[in-house]
Design a binder for these strands. Structure first.
Lengths: 232, 232
DNA sequence: TAGTGGTCTAGACCACGGG
DNA sequence: CCGTGGTCTAGACCACTAG
C-alpha cells in the first residue's frame, strides 16, 4: 500500500475519531508532516485523495476542512467501485446468461464486435428491485465467467479474482418511460419513469471490458454526487 | 494563470491539432518536460487536470493516452462550471424573483435560515424547455442580484462579477413523476418522467452560496459523466 | 504580518510494461 | 533489460487568509 493511501486512511480515522463535522479544521500540513513523518507532497497526495472522495476541502491560506457528509440510501453515480458495498441486504437474480455478440451501439462503446459474455441481471435491495442490468464482457479480456459469479459481485471477481484494475468509465444517461417488459421485472407499470444509463468501464491499460445498459427503478433508487474542482 | 494550467491547455491543443483519438499516445513525460521547459511535477499536475477532465488516462510503465471523446448534446452532471457554455442557443425565462427564507430542507443544505434571493427560472435550449430551476442565494454571501442577471448566467456573474470562486457541490438526485404545475412549464404531461436534483454549491472557502432544486425535462436533456480513479 | 496552503524544481529511487 | 510513469523528499518561493 502506498504511503499517501496509508496517510489518507489515518486522516480519515482521525476525522471519525474526533467526530469532526462540516467546517471543522484539520491539523496544518506542517503538523501532519511531523505527525506522520512524511514529506509535504505525500501529505498533499493524501489530502488530494480525500478531496476527490468528497471528504475534505482545502482553503488556501487557511486550512483543510471537513465537508458535509453524504446521506444514507443514496448510491454514487460516479464511483467506479460499483455500489455493492453500500447496499442493504443486496441480492441478484440472473435472468439470462449467454455468449453473444453485442448489438451495434454497444460494439461502438467496446471498440470491437467480438463474442462477449452477456448477462442480464435484476438486482434487489431488501427484496425490492432497483436496477435491471444488461452487460457485455468481451471474452478476450474476461476469459472466464459463470452464472454463479454473476450472482455475486462481478466487479469484485474482476478485481480480486482476475487481478485487473478498473480505472475509468464513460456514462451516458437519460430519463424515459419504462417499456412493459422492463416494468415487469422492476415491479412497476409500463410508462412509469426510469433512469437509463449506458455505462462503459475501462481497465487501467485503457481497454474497455464492460459495456452495460442499466435501467433503474425510480422508487427504489436515489443518487448522489459530491464533486470538487480541486487539484493536488 | 498557473504554469500547469498553461501546459494542460497546450497539451489539449496538441491533441486536437494532431487529431489524436482513443488509445493514441502522448509524448513521454520527459519529452513534455523538455518541450515545455518545466519540471516533472508541473507536467504531472497538467496531466492530472486532463485526467480529471476525462481527456487522457495514464498507464504506468507505458504512457499517457487519449480517452474516447464525449458526445454532443449531453450535459455534464458533475461539472461545477454549470453547462451554460455547452448549450445551443440557450435562453432563460425568469418566472419569479423574490426575497424570502428558504423552506426547511434547503435551510439544512445552506446551514442557515437567513433571507435569500429566490429565483425560479425556466431554461430553454433552441426554444425547448429542458430544466425548471428554483434557487436560493443567501443575501449575506451574494449581496446583489437582479432579474436581469438571472436572465443570463448567474454563475458567470458570481465568478466574473463578484470574483468568487466556486469550488465544490453536493447533489442528490432521483427520478420521479412530474406534477401538473411543473409539467405546464416544461411542456409535458402530468405524470411524465423527470429527473429531480437537489444541488448545493460551495465557494472556495467552504461557504454554501446556492441551494437549488432542478427538474429536468426528460425529452430535452441527457447527461454524461466521465470519471477516473486517477490520482496525481 | 505571521501562518497556511499552493506552485515549482531537481533529483533519487520504485514499479510496471513490453520487447 | 530499458523506458515509462509513480512515489517521495527537501527546499525555495508565491499567494492567500485572518487577526
Amino acid at each position: 500500500m502506498k504511503k499517501y493511501e496509508l496517510v489518507a486512511d489515518k486522516i480519515k480515522v482521525y476525522i471519525t475519531k474526533n467526530k469532526l463535522h462540516h467546517g471543522d479544521k484539520l491539523p496544518t500540513i506542517t503538523e501532519l508532516m511531523k505527525e506522520y513523518q512524511v514529506g509535504k507532497s505525500t501529505i498533499l497526495q493524501a489530502i488530494t485523495l480525500l478531496t476527490q472522495r468528497g471528504i475534505v476541502y482545502k482553503v488556501q491560506g487557511s486550512g483543510v476542512f471537513v465537508r458535509p457528509t453524504g446521506r444514507d440510501g443514496y448510491m454514487s453515480l460516479t464511483d467506479n467501485a460499483g455500489f455493492a458495498h453500500v447496499l442493504k441486504d443486496p441480492t441478484t437474480e440472473v435472468i439470462e446468461f449467454a455468449e453473444k455478440r453485442p448489438p451495434k451501439p454497444l460494439c461502438d462503446y467496446l471498440h470491437s464486435d467480438e463474442v462477449c459474455y452477456f448477462i442480464k441481471r435484476l438486482r434487489r435491495q431488501e427484496g425490492k428491485p432497483f436496477v435491471l442490468e444488461e452487460s457485455y464482457y468481451p471474452k478476450s479480456i474476461i476469459p472466464f465467467m459463470s452464472k454463479e459469479i454473476a450472482e455475486g459481485s462481478i466487479f469484485d471477481y474482476i478485481k480480486d479474482g482476475l487481478k485487473k484494475e478498473i480505472r475509468f468509465s464513460d456514462k451516458y444517461m437519460r430519463v424515459r418511460k419504462l417499456r412493459a417488459d422492463e416494468a415487469k421485472y422492476l415491479e412497476l407499470e409500463e410508462g412509469d419513469p426510469c433512469l437509463e444509463v449506458y455505462d462503459t468501464f475501462y481497465l487501467a491499460n485503457g481497454t474497455p471490458f464492460d459495456s452495460s445498459k442499466l435501467v433503474y427503478n425510480y422508487q427504489n433508487s436515489k443518487f448522489y454526487d459530491q464533486s470538487s474542482d480541486d487539484i493536488i
